[in-house]
Design a protein around this nucleic acid. Structure first.
Lengths: 206, 206
DNA sequence: CATGGAATTGCATAGTGTGCAAGTTTTGCG
DNA sequence: CGCAAAACTTGCACACTATGCAATTCCATG
């Protein structure tokens, strides 16, 4: 399992640190001047790297704002693909593993939440930063439900991605947000959407 | 009803024509060379306008590819806001009015469909071009369901937007696609998502 | 300590996007 | 008609975005 460049090597740690430095610089500058008035040059200076190095880390300033994107690691999700249980509980477990693994950085989430409150466009930026995760989830769902259901799988994956982004933002109102809180908030939103689309019995009005 | 610049004035007709010319030029160049290799300068030349004029019509080449975005006009949708019937039938009627009003240009849809097939990234581009409609729909849904349900409303609106984009693409497989076809395809997808989130009785496995 | 690979950087260059001012065309009205 | 206001097009200048390449430095490994 020893990788060519172990994730604990000096190189790897510095890379993570630089990526964080760049993201923090971006968040700070965006809060101070408004994201639209922040240039890649300003970010590079504030992070202490050259402009060229900035682009070695992120393809554009939007990506720098969102930081290293959430992704499925090499976990074993065959149980999810094989399961025929109702989707939502399985999804809850799946998200639980990913979100817990990524950890919660409340400081950063607070800054992100404030940015989203002051600039509506940034909500989409952060939601889009989950696109990689959404694509991977769509693949998992297709493996679970069959190729015929690809369209539905992609819609559900996109829905989960947006709900997850909302949940991260909402979790900052908790004093000590945990991955459980984020996942619960996510599932709750998805459930509300489902109730709206398929009203049954005591569900709210459409 | 006489507007300051009626939609039938010379200016207005020329503006629509130029916008269409630019979009058609963009679609043609993207099909010929791949969207990533198309520059705004190439588009402007092919459309017979200056680069500066290109940017007077569209903020970037992605917008030029999608053309004039679908939008709610000044129709009266108070019936939708006030209704407490199940959501999907109301939504079907609402979408029917918008899609019928915009009309279906099968030629253009075919080119878009081909582009999406050859370049996965463009699916997101076209889906994003419905963002204005999605925002307006979210507002309508909030007016209907109450401010407390804003998060759910936004999720549903985003879901509808993606389903609608899928439906437009799928409608080209119909010889003579109508707005009814597009709306039906849209609703069917949304229904499938709802069934997946709230499995009842005979619904498919999760 | 030597060597290969990764990271940083500067430089050159192509493309993106906006503000402004000048010039033209269209519109609306007396 | 004829004229003034409004709308549209364009060129130009400028700042910013993004990538490829080559030189250099720094880390990893034997």
């Amino acid at each position: 399992m020893t990788q060519p460049t172990p994730s604990s090597s000096l190189n790897a740690r510095r890379r993570r640190r630089t990526a964080r430095d760049i993201q923090n610089a971006t968040l700070g500058l965006a809060l101070a001047h408004g994201f639209g008035h922040v240039t890649t040059g300003m970010i590079a200076d504030a992070a202490g790297v050259s402009l060229r190095t900035f682009f070695n880390y992120f393809p554009n300033k939007e990506a720098a704002l969102a930081g290293e994107p959430l992704r499925f690691k090499n976990f074993d999700f065959s149980w999810f693909r094989a399961s025929r249980q109702p989707l939502l509980p399985d999804l809850e477990r799946l998200l639980g593993e990913i979100v817990a693994d990524a950890g919660i950085d409340r400081e950063r989430l607070c800054r992100i939440e404030e940015l989203c409150r002051t600039d509506t466009n940034l909500q989409a930026v952060f939601a889009n930063s989950l696109q990689g995760l959404v694509d991977q989830l769509a693949d998992l769902l297709v493996a679970r439900m069959g190729e015929d259901a690809r369209q539905t799988a992609e819609l559900v994956a996109a829905l989960v991605g947006r709900a997850l982004a909302n949940a991260y933002r909402a979790s900052v109102h908790d004093d000590e947000p945990t991955s459980d809180v984020v996942v619960r908030l996510t599932i709750r939103q998805i459930h509300a959407v489902g109730a709206l689309l398929h009203p049954v019995d005591g569900d709210e009005r459409g």
